[in-house]
Design a protein around this nucleic acid. Structure first.
Lengths: 190, 190
DNA sequence: ATTTCAATACGAGACGGACCGTATGTCAAC
DNA sequence: GTTGACATACGGTCCGTCTCGTATTGAAAT
């Protein structure tokens, strides 16, 4: 009934191999075969845990990447957004950005994977900002009734630039975006 | 020097095959082999014209998809944006949306292709909106100095939803986005 | 307490198949 | 007759599955 338990070290080795390979050869150069080879396990062992290389990367990223999200409290919505976005953008410059873009590429071609990505990663980030909005609303800074739309306004430009021009995600861009979102949030919807 | 000229009918057949295959089997199911087979030419003939399936799709899309972009003139920036975005969003619901998402997936993994996509498709769309902004500026509706940022505010949310949840691109969403962009555009940057 | 047994994980490898990208010929158009 | 379009053939990579033999667990039987 129970059987032999899975080796946790193997989990770690697989995720590590996926990240390393992506860093070195790009997501293009990442393959299930390569992951198995580098982590020193058989393909079967990888396929037992993940159905695709996308799921491996997603798991690796969801694990340690955004556990250390700051949830700043500067006293104003604009300040909070600036702080959060600056930190988030900075985190997208290295391997992290490459992995995020890879996930987007995967999601685009696989509806089920898109749902998984949304749940495991995107929804989490949205929740952070939703919290900032709630605090702003309590302070009377947010009159706009549609949180979902405001969240799109925050993360839309980020993904847009992340996909097509990651270098544009500077602190200045974060500040400008934060300012604009705060402005829209302050207004009611006519 | 001259040699045998390329058959224009072959060009058309290749693009058509790529679109049809993507429509039927998704971008996942699209391959250079499949394109060659369906269009009734050899792989070599396809590779002579395009280096990847992404380039085929890009060429097919750049050709006929956005030649009929409306450049509305309703008298206000908000009205113009609403009209343009409503039309654009509507055009992203069918195969067109699938093809656009496919291009994004390709761009993410290939820097050169990203540049090509930007030039052939994205820059064109940005130019349309830039025109609307210029007209708005002439009318005194636009005080914000950074057109590039405003363009990101327009297209960022669109791509974000196009990637993760295409069904969200409704006329109501277009109107809301247009309203927000107009609001930000009206303010100066402090 | 020891033995047996079912269930599961693991490493290794083989497999058919899809697709890639290229090299090698043939032939049509100038 | 030179140029380049076109078709065929080929080696290579990766996919996803399958088969072995072995190892590790818990539970049931002795």
């Amino acid at each position: 009934m129970t059987g032999r338990p899975r080796d946790p070290a193997v989990d770690e080795a697989i995720r590590r191999a996926a990240v390393d390979l992506t860093e070195q050869h790009g997501y293009r150069g990442l393959s299930m075969e390569g992951i198995a080879a580098l982590s020193g396990v058989s393909k079967q062992t990888v396929y037992r845990r993940y159905r695709s290389k996308g799921e491996v990367v997603l798991d690796a990223l969801a694990g340690y990447a955004f556990t250390h999200l700051p949830t700043p409290d500067t006293g104003s919505l604009r300040g909070d957004l600036t702080a959060l976005l600056t930190a988030t953008f900075a985190g997208q410059q290295g391997v992290n950005g490459t992995l995020n873009r890879a996930l987007a590429a995967e999601a685009v071609q696989d509806q089920a994977f898109a749902a998984l990505l949304w749940e495991k990663l995107i929804a989490v980030r949205r929740e952070s900002v939703r919290e900032l909005l709630a605090r702003g609303r309590a302070r009377g800074e947010v009159a706009h009734p549609d949180d979902e739309f405001l969240l799109d306004l925050v993360y839309g430009p980020m993904w847009y630039r992340l996909l097509f021009d990651p270098a544009a995600l500077t602190p200045a861009y974060a500040a400008e975006l934060a300012r604009s979102v705060a402005l829209v949030a302050a207004g009611t919807r006519p």
